[in-house]
Every structure is written in C-alpha cells, then in structure tokens.
Design a protein around this nucleic acid. Structure first.
Lengths: 339, 339
DNA sequence: CTGAAAGCGCTTACAG
DNA sequence: CTGAAAGCGCTTACAG
C-alpha cells in the first residue's frame, strides 16, 4: 500500500499490469469477459497503488453520477434529520451518495434558482422535502430525473409523493382533544398553501365539526405567515383552550411562548403536535403528538426512490395501506379536563 | 425559456452565439478579457436555452469540484444536524455543496473504507464529525485535501480541529452538581478513546476531586461499549445520586431508562447533559446541560473550513479565546438537595 | 479580445 | 477475451 501523493488513475493500473485501461475498467466494473488471472492482477495492482475511482469522471462518461440530491428547508427538524439519516444509509448501501441542498428556509417550495444548483450536480435522483413551485413542475418532469416528494402529497403535481394519511392524523388530533374535554381549539399550521398542512387542518376541523365545534377562520394560523408574538396574543385573546400544531417543532415554540405568558401546556391549555420527534430523539416523552411511524415512513421513502432509480414505476401501495394509521401518543401537554 | 428535453451544453451556446465554447466558458466564469457585447449575447443565449453548467465536467477538468464532504455517524443528534444546517448554508453561499457520508454508527472513527468512498467524490474539503483512525492520519494528510475535525480536538493528529473548552465544560458540570449537594456522581461517556469524551470526564473528575469526591473507575461508563441495561443496573446499584453524561442524547436515554426503574431525574437523581440541544430545537427547557454556544461554534467551524479552502493557514484563535466558556444551563433534571 | 487544440479520468461502442 | 479510439462537457494553456 505505498500510495503516492499524486493521484493514481486507471492508466497507472494499466501500466502496472500491462493491460489496457479498457480492460482494467471492465474488471473493476465487473463487466463480463475477463479471466480470473487478469482479475487478480488488476485487483493486486489497485491495492498496491491505492487506486480510488474518480466518480466525477465516471459519471461524466456514463451519465450516472450515483448521487441523490436531498432538498430541504430545515435540517434541524428531527423529522428531516431522522429521515435523512435512514435514507442516506439505505442509499449508501446501493452505492449512492447524498448531496444536500438547502433553500435556506425561504419558502416551502423548490424554485428555479434551487433546481439550477441541483441540476448542475447531475444527480441520478432527487428526494425533496419541499414541494415543487407551480412553474417548476413541468421543468422537473422534463429533466427525466426521478423525483420523490417526501412527506408531501405528490398527486397534485402528478409526481411520486410519499405521505401518510394526513387527514386521518388531523382527525385523530381533533378526536383526542375533544375526548379530553377541550372545546375551543385553534390550529397552527406552517404555510396556507402546503397541502399536507391543509389536510391535517381539514381532518382536524372535520373531527371537531362532528361534535359541533367549528374551526372558524379566525382560529386558523400559519406560523410562517403571521407575526409570531401577535399570533400568540391572538390565541390568548380568543380564550383558546387547546392548540393543534402542524408539527412538533411548531408546538415547541408555541408551548414556550405560552409559558412566557403564564399559560402552561397541559395545565392551562392542551397542545398536540405531529411527528413524534421526541421518539426519534429517544427523548423522554413530553408532548402529546401524532405518530405516523417515522422509521417505516423513511424506509418507505428510500424504497420509493430506489424503485424509481431501477427503472420501475413508482407503483407502490400507498404508505397508509401497509402501515398503521396515524395515532395519538399521549404526553404531558394534554389531559382530561373537568367538563 | 424554451428548454429542450435534451441537455444544453456549452457547444449549444457557442453555436447559438457564433462564438467558441472557449469564449462562452470564459464569460460564464468571469475570466478577464471579453467585451460587454459578447457577455450579453452569451447570457441571453444561456437564458434562452436554459443552460446549466455540468459541475462534474467542470470539476474533472479544473480539479475543483466545489463540494465539501461531511462525515458523520449520527445525523439525528441535533448537535450534528444543527451544525450541518448552518455550515451547509454558509458553504452554499460560497458556491460549495455538501456531500454526506455516514459511517453507519460503526465507530467514532473515519476508516479507510470510508475515506475511499469520500475520495472517489474528489471533494475540495472534508469536514468530519469523526476523528481519523490512527492509520488514516498520514493517508489523509497526503491527500492534501483540507480536513477539519469538528467538535473534536485536532491537535493529537496535527490537524485542524474545532472544539471548545471541553475540560472546562466538564468542570462546570462537576461544580454544578456539587453546588446542588450531590455527592456521589457517575460519568457516562460515549467511547473511552475519544479525546473530547475524556476531556469532559477529566474536567469533571477534577472539579469533584477539589471537593474531596473521587470519580473512581467503577463510576465511569462508556455507553457505546457497555451493555446498556447492565450499565443502568450498575448505576442504580452504586447508589449514585447524579449522572454527568457526555452529551444530551446520552442523557435522554439514561433519564428514560432510570425512569422505567422508578428513578426520576431531578427528583431522585441529578442528571447533566452537554450541548444544550433543547435550545437548538427551540424546545422548552428540560434538561440541565452544558452550553458551548452552538450557533457560534458552527459558524466558527464553517469559517475554519473556508479559510483552509482559500489557501490560508488554519491559524484561527481557538474558539474558547473569542467566545464565552462552556456554561451550565439549569433545567429540571438537577436541583438543590437538602444536605 | 477570441479561437483551436489538448486533456481531465473515466466508460462506451466497436474491432479484432 | 482484450485493445485502440472516441467522447462525456468542461477548462486550461497556448496561439493569434
């Protein structure tokens, strides 16, 4: 293993073995037609010289870079980092590496500026935690690159999306709050135009309506579109007795802000989040949340992408058909109230 | 913007403008020597045809791929995802993209198998949350690729490492536990051979010793090397009244396991973590932990890498010289005891 | 200021 | 079964 400071290329292996670069390449890529003896000579020389393939050169010629782009807005949310961790491991097993692209929290959308940077890397596939902007849908399809939207419904775009039963999750949250005796809840979403956000909202409203509680527009907030302090003030002013949040990260900041006003979650107000990130972090249970089965969900997303990459249609059964529906995980932030 | 399904290359722009690919390339890379008129023609054609550079081809020829490799073992730990998020944003501003490499939690080390896969991508720089394995130090140096170890001391390897005052953090934890009246603490580290883990341990032991409390070997555990259940049993059997954990993620599982045995953190036993991940997640404060200033720390790491990439020596002042020392953040998991 | 040629390190046809 | 040639899409010297 006497490696040189200068980089070792196929040419060096060819010279060392007396073979052509062509043959060396064929052996390393396990293409048919070479003798056992040649194979051993090549492998010995590679080991001896410390040969490492250049995937950039390989990708340029072959058209496949063996990379997957991951598009996200907030890696700190454990829902994303947990999913990314699992997905990256699965991809690495298949010889793919992940390239990360953050939209710097600008919006919940993949826009042209972002796609430019992504396309410059010529990924074999794109896994996005963001929905495509309306004017990007055709662009993305025309690239011909497998595109999987994770945690978002793909059907509005005619794309492969991996999501769970979002309405069902919202309903579960609503039913839980009602069963605890909360009668005056509000919803805190992320963005008004993100479909999963609306799905959870509608499922939530549906469950409330069934019991005669109306989720009127003044009880619906989008944290990314409101001034935060003002939003908290209005929730307090409404005399809300419960908050259903689009996800746990939103719930955390809401709980914190309410606490600063002396309103304690679980005691003075009920709070339900979504995603069960405390389990992903192996934290002691704290928040009442909706669990969609994060581990299986991530695996399912990885499988969807690998299917597309192997040229198969994304004809997977929806996640909800093969897995348990979203379920309430009871924490300290909701409790039965004296009616 | 009538883009074609087939990819648009410099050749197409050259044909469209009547210039050579050479000139087009020079304009796009803002190399000196071209007229304003040529520049405008090139830009118009690029926009019209939807040209996007191929960074693989560019990197192959120029020798710089504009990518940074990130090496990690556990992206779910918010200390890593938070840092990665900040670093990736900073790098993207400078035209670099991140490629992720997980060692699948095998060990706290970068080994040859991992470096092979990394090197195949020809990154311009490597930012590692893992220390290099002993036999990898020379190999890594010989690559000539800027290598920054984040959250780890680089000096044992003669490499650039970004870490805070780890001994000081351990001391702070020890002093805090003593000041609360805990007299019989244990330490739960990660791996016995990771320097920061030992540094925190030694700082901790030092603070205890000063007050006549000895951290004997039977009171030191490494979670990655012990059977977990057995470790918890032994902590209970020792009659420990406090636990200092290497980081918050370890503290979380320890708190959970103790709770299952009816030992409640904050009530029956004091627990101190490290990193203040609850703040990174904007969660309500829960655990007592040591804060090193995560945001500045990440920025500092990004700056160290960017310095190296621009050819400057990594002659930065140690993080601790320019920032506040590690400090205790009081949570619910420790409280003053009746002496 | 612009262009023709060479070459980065591979893989892909195509010959033999 | 192996090799010589071409080419992926760029950028880098080098001419003019």
């Amino acid at each position: 293993m006497d490696r040189d400071k200068k980089k070792v290329t196929l040419k060096d292996i060819a010279a060392r073995t007396g073979l052509s670069v062509n043959t060396v390449s064929r052996v390393l890529n396990k293409k048919p037609y070479y003798t056992k003896e040649v194979e051993e000579r090549v492998n010995a020389a590679c080991k001896e010289l410390g040969y490492i393939v250049d995937m950039n050169a390989s990708g340029l010629r072959s058209g496949s870079t063996r990379t997957i782009a991951i598009l996200y807005d907030d890696l700190v949310n454990p829902f994303y980092s947990y999913t990314t961790d699992i997905i990256s491991k699965r991809f690495e097993e298949h010889g793919y590496n992940l390239i990360m692209f953050s939209n710097n929290d600008r919006s919940p959308y993949v826009d042209y500026e972002m796609m430019r940077i992504v396309m410059a890397r010529k990924p074999d596939g794109i896994l996005s935690f963001l929905e495509p902007a309306a004017d990007m849908v055709d662009f993305i399809k025309e690239t011909g690159i497998p595109f999987v939207i994770f945690g978002r419904d793909g059907s509005p775009y005619g794309m492969t999306g991996v999501c769970a039963d979002e309405r069902g999750g919202g309903r579960a949250a609503g039913e839980h709050l009602l069963s605890c005796g909360y009668r005056s809840p509000v919803y805190v979403g992320s963005w008004h135009d993100v479909k999963v956000c609306l799905d959870r909202q509608e499922g939530f409203a549906e469950a409330l309506r069934k019991e005669g509680v109306e989720l009127t527009p003044d009880r619906i907030f989008y944290i990314r579109e409101h001034d935060f302090a003002e939003m908290i003030d209005r929730i307090a002013a409404l005399g809300a007795d419960a908050v259903f949040c689009f996800n746990d990260m939103i719930a955390f900041v809401v709980i914190e802000a309410l606490a600063e006003r002396g309103v304690v979650a679980g005691r003075d107000i009920g709070v339900v989040g979504y995603d069960n990130v405390q389990q992903m972090l192996k934290m002691p249970r704290f928040i009442t949340t909706i669990d969609v089965g994060g581990h299986d969900f991530a695996e399912y997303g990885a499988a969807a992408m690998l299917d597309l990459l192997s040229g198969e249609p994304a004809g997977m059964a929806p996640f909800t058909e093969k897995h348990a529906p979203p379920a309430v995980v009871q924490g300290d932030t909701t409790r039965p109230r004296n009616a």
